[in-house]
Nucleic acid binder design. Sequence first.
DNA 1: CTCTTAACTTAGCATTGAGGTC
DNA 2: GACCTCAATGCTAAGTTAAGAG
Length: 743
Amino acid sequence: DSHKHKDKHKDKEHKHKEHKKDKEKDKSKNSNSEYRDFSEKKHKDKEKDKVKHKDSSSSEKHKDKHKDKEKHKEEKSKFSSDDFKVKKEKENGFSSPSCNRSENEDDCLFSIKEDKPLKRHRDNDEDIAYKPKKIKTEDEKREKKRKQEVENDKSKKKSKDKGAMGEGKKKKMKKEEEEKWKWWEEERHPEGIKWKFLEHKGPVFAPAYERMPDKVKFYYDGKTMKLSLGAEEVATFFAKMLDHEYTTKDIFRKNFFKDWRKEMTSEEKSTITSLDKCDFGEMHQYFKAQAEARKQMSKEEKQKIKEENERLLQEYGFCMMDNHRERIANFKIEPPGLFRGRGNHPKMGMLKRRIMPEDIIINCSKDSKVPVPPPGHKWKEVRHDNKVTWLVSWTENIQGSIKYIMLNPSSRIKGEKDWQKYETARRLKKSVEKIRSQYREDWKSKEMKIRQRAVALYFIDKLALRAGNEKEEGETADTVGCCSLRVEHITLHPEIDGQEYVVEFDFLGKDSIRYYNKVPVEKRVFKNLQLFMENKQPEDDLFDRLNTSILNKHLQDLMEGLTAKVFRTYNASITLQQQLKELTSPDDNVPAKILSYNRANRAVAILCNHQRAPPKTFEKSMQNLQVKIDAKKDQLVDARRELKSAKADAKVRRDEKSKKTVESKKKAVQRLEEQLMKLEVQATDREENKQIALGTSKLNYLDPRISVAWCKKWNIPVEKIYNKTQREKFAWAIDMADEDFEF
DNA sequence: CTCTTAACTTAGCATTGAGGTC
DNA sequence: GACCTCAATGCTAAGTTAAGAG
């Protein structure tokens, strides 16, 4: 019975894909419905449920499905929890405005043409002062801002920096200054110029392939076979991955085998014709043993390796940019291996080839010491382009895209950009209301294009969706963002669960992470969506007259520097600020306040759909924590009892010593209570965080000055919020934000 | 306008190693 | 001192955006 279901399931899916194919370039896609673990499961369950409804049966499998379904529901509600939405809507100013304009307006016919470019006035008086060139104005604005801030700071700085500094001291100061250079207090480069001087040592290449010992055999069709150097290297890539599920996937195996054969000698090629007959078992074991041996290394050996790494870092991990030694982010070239795309990627398993000096383009100053290629090699090119920030680039062979070596987030060049990003988001804050009322107006436009644009923008604003560029079919996993949503990704519910006009989203977004959400929308949006979906197939674009380019051009007209992603930054940051205000209780102790911070952070992560697979050891670590809590509770009970008896004792004895005992017992109880509290808070935090990743929003979406201000206001050490790396990245914010900072 | 490409940001997972526990 | 755990870090894929060619 269950077998039949599976078949049906497959069949259905197959059809679904087939259908798609008609429209798109014929691509022989496998009906294998493997999304990555986390998203995949739920997705599958949904499909299963559908099947289940069709013909019910009581097999064991079905019971499981049922369970899964319940779980699924739970998860759903977690991500679209009313609690959260209410809050979010408040802070975003989405207090569901009444839309009682005549309904009929909506349904009027559209003129198919007449591109009347909706002229928008620059509403921001500050903006008027901007020059037309967008980047420039952005820079100027910041320039202005910085100068102002420097001005404000001057008195403070003067005495430190310049004021009482004798010639003798200068050298010492310079060195110290070097350690923590405050680039944010300095003049910026003119527009478009990224640096004036750049010198570095070039990349570190992946170590050359080392042959396996002869005793480690590879077998083909049961017979041992000595592979040639090239073929062996590629074989080891596969052998190392044998534990991974994806080495069982058809696409992966097919791609790998195809690329592997390219590396074989003609002899090998004629012998090895089927991957299924390959036995990498011994190789696999060998690498496992190697890994184990590495773990078992003595302290000295480990120390040696560490020192070697440090040497490498010191030599290649830094560059000189404009008189400052700056950390490079990724100075090591990606080693060869098998490509593993995320989600159901058509290219998984392909060989990522080794990058050679001849592939490398070096970028540095003309007047710098140009890095020297490894002996016997030369660079592909050396250029001197100070309009870009990268030091090294090469073209990767899977997608043919360019990869770069750039600077660490703590560098001036990255920091300035980051700061600028938040300043743009803050400018959006000033004009967001106007923009919102504009797109609400546009819902009624007689032009389809404008309506689509307005609805899409509403989603981007309200749900923090990504822009959604179109992607080349068959080159990447099938994922979408706002503009590339297809009809099959949303379901309209005129009424559901007591709510009207609900849109149910279900699609795979960036990194094939599933986005699932049920959102009540305004009636006008709902009606528009119905209209957009009319006469369309599930695999058709929802916004067929829109793409990211059109959308971003429009946004550019609304505000200098405005693009789709600014909404994500803005909504994330404003949500954090708002939630922090709401959740922080002045009387709480430090751990409780940090829990509040994490909850605010969490609200943002939910908004931005930053998920993670629950850690493999989650259940266990949760249990461990519970054990600790229970133990602490027992201790507390004991301590209280002891305190009580000590008190009784003191009452009788009335001497100093017993009084002291009471005091110390009291202290012990207090300490235990505090410890217990801390543990419980930790447990709550961890539980709530099971499948939510806070890091991404913290690092990329939340204006660090909000967090810094919060820390200062409540006297929380920033170290509790930002670890060392994060503090380096956000040094500018930690230095400049005071407790009154308002995003 | 469409298509392509370069440059840069954002993303989650795997590995590592510091610091705690046994 | 061995072992364990989880946060930090490393890695690199997958997005966004602007610009330029056709």
